[in-house]
Design a protein around this nucleic acid. Sequence first.
DNA 1: AAGGCGTGGCC
DNA 2: TGGCCAAGCCT
Length: 360
Amino acid sequence: MNPVSAALLIWYKNNKRILPWREITDPYHIWISEVILQQTRVNQGVDYYLRFVEQWPDVKQLASASEQEVLKMWQGLGYYSRARNMLVAAQEIVNKYNGLFPRSADELKKLKGIGDYTAAAISSIAFDEPVAVIDGNVFRVLSRLFNEETAIDSSAAKTTFRMLADSLLDKSNPGEFNQAIMEFGALHCVPKNPDCRTCPLQDSCLAFALKKVDQLPVKKNKIKIRKRFLHYFIFLQKEQQQCYTLLKYRGSGDVWQGLYDFPCIESDRILSIAELDHEQLFTAIKAVATEIIPIPGIRKHILTHQHLTAKFYVVKCKNGFEHLKNNSLSLVSQTELGNYPLPRLIDQFLHENENLFDNC
DNA sequence: AAGGCGTGGCC
DNA sequence: TGGCCAAGCCT
């Protein structure tokens, strides 16, 4: 075996974290954990994993869930297409694969939401297929070990780094090796200020010899940020001793697809009441409102590619909501609100204004 | 193939 | 503080 590979396996044996999906090889559990960990840190994902597999212990039970249930379980984790795709893939596995996971990476990749990385992770960990995983950790470790300056977000990166990863892969224990190199990247060969002084691979690391550790990996894309300004309207109406509000279903083509928030006016800056008066929705609101109460202050919500600024208004109503309802607006009681998947921004707002419905 | 998609943690 | 980053995938 390659001495670097052997050193990685020894390091892993001594340093790996105890995690709920370690030491098991059931493909369903490996799959759930891998999807949760896409672009997500272990600490953020572990509780979600435990709740998820408790609610749906196998692929057949997940396949019978509704999209809203799965998104509710995913609420707060982000990248919600992962949850929607998992439901589709679970149904595919039940209907086309008789409830049995495909065993090869090539076959796994045909499933919705399973790409190169996740396919390799499942097939190597659950089925011992000798395929190397390439994720952000592997890019970093390999670029430093081999002084590989190909930008990791270029189209050439896949080919280049696959050669390097395959050259190290321990084909007799691919699942263990793949987890070892990822864990090493996550815990030791970290992006900023790695402790090269105590690195078990120091003698083999070209970047260390060349004093280029802090310059690798190379990445070319810079993040562009879109600023958005949202005016949310929380309708309140009492009907038969119950308090109701209006939730907006967020369709495709924007952030939070499949989740619910409140009816909203978006603009290129925060508008005053007088300026809102020119908006069509606001005209409709005035038709049903007895009172429009601004919630003091504005709320900043920072996403990776968007900076959101939100202003909230309570709209007290005597009349019905008939003027406003359409197929993306639902009348929801305060009790039912908990069943709806909400973006973090909305969920936090509701938690910080728990008495909102009191004066309904 | 370049851009869209969340949230939280780090310094 | 704000910018970068995290076990990627889809279009």
